[in-house]
Computed example of a mutant assay.
Amino acid sequence: MSKLFGYILSPVFYFFFGLTLCIFHPIQWICHRFFGYKAHKVSVDILNFFLTYCQVFLLNSVIFKNDYSLPTHRPIIFVANHQSMYDIPTLIWFLRRYSAKFISKIELTKGIPSISINLRVGGGANINRKDNKQAISEIIKLGRRMQQNNWSTVIFPEGTRAKDGQVKTFQFGGIATLLKAVPNALVVPVAIENSWKIVRFGMFPLTTGNALRWTVLNPIDPEGKTANEITLEAETEIRKVLGQEMT
């Protein structure tokens, strides 16, 4: 039934999702060009509010749970599992007070309305996966910006999307590189559930009636711990929420 409704509702979703991207592209440009970073960030936050709640056109619910009072005076590394591209707008919107940045493929910095301009000027890291030296350099630069501005970064240590919802082994390299540049950053795991179901059948049809959940978990203070230990702890806590505990 979810697939059947998807054939009907997917075009509606794509229309409004695409329209939102097109409308906010010039808005972002104007905000950045004439009013600077803060105005641009507000435009990006509002953009991602609308992108997040485009899920209503698929009859999907969006639930973001954060029971922790996270600091705004300290950089944060949010560590999340990754299920689909629809993970990202919700993270940007609900983590907006922490100025969440992302590590993205450099190929995405061109050709996508709203997305590409934000990647170019929004302060995140755009990496070439084929050039390890460039990637590390960009992540270190991002860490320095985090330190200077008390920004946060969202990192997906799996390295790719889990298309079946099964968490892949977390890699610690990105977290280790960030912590070298911003050693005082708090590490906060975030468990993402069910967004993989939206694209279970690919780009079309999208599925409907899913309960999409983002759960902020207990923060991890990195002091006295290696990047490997921190990454394993974050993965373990996320797996517990998803019912995919390590054996």
Score class of each variant (00 low, 15 high):
161 R>G: 01
162 A>E: 01
164 D>G: 03
164 D>H: 05
165 G>H: 05
166 Q>S: 13
167 V>F: 08
167 V>Y: 07
167 V>Q: 05
169 T>C: 14
174 G>N: 04
175 I>Q: 08
175 I>K: 07
176 A>T: 07
176 A>I: 06
176 A>G: 11
177 T>E: 11
177 T>D: 14
177 T>K: 09
177 T>A: 15
178 L>R: 12
178 L>E: 14
178 L>Y: 14
178 L>T: 12
178 L>I: 14
179 L>K: 04
180 K>N: 10
181 A>P: 02
181 A>K: 02
181 A>L: 03
181 A>F: 01
182 V>T: 08
182 V>A: 02
182 V>L: 02
183 P>Q: 04
183 P>I: 00
184 N>C: 06
186 L>N: 05
186 L>V: 01
187 V>A: 02
188 V>I: 02
189 P>L: 00
189 P>V: 00
189 P>C: 00
191 A>Y: 02
191 A>Q: 01
191 A>N: 05
192 I>N: 00
193 E>I: 08
193 E>M: 07
193 E>D: 03
193 E>H: 01
194 N>D: 01
196 W>I: 00
196 W>L: 00
197 K>I: 10
197 K>M: 11
197 K>G: 10
198 I>Y: 01
200 R>I: 01
200 R>P: 00
202 G>Q: 13
202 G>T: 08
202 G>I: 09
202 G>F: 05
203 M>T: 14
204 F>P: 08
204 F>D: 11
204 F>V: 11
205 P>F: 04
205 P>E: 06
206 L>F: 11
206 L>V: 05
206 L>T: 09
208 T>Q: 04
209 G>W: 05
209 G>C: 08
209 G>P: 10
209 G>S: 13
210 N>E: 12
211 A>I: 15
211 A>Q: 14
211 A>S: 15
212 L>N: 03
212 L>G: 00
212 L>D: 04
213 R>D: 03
213 R>T: 14
213 R>G: 07
214 W>F: 10
214 W>I: 03
214 W>C: 08
215 T>A: 09
215 T>I: 13
216 V>D: 06
216 V>S: 09
218 N>E: 15
219 P>R: 03
219 P>A: 07
220 I>A: 06
221 D>Y: 10
221 D>L: 07
221 D>T: 12
222 P>Q: 08
222 P>G: 10
223 E>G: 12
224 G>Y: 13
224 G>A: 12
225 K>S: 12
225 K>M: 15
225 K>C: 11
225 K>N: 12
226 T>P: 04
227 A>Y: 04
228 N>R: 15
228 N>S: 15
229 E>C: 10
229 E>K: 11
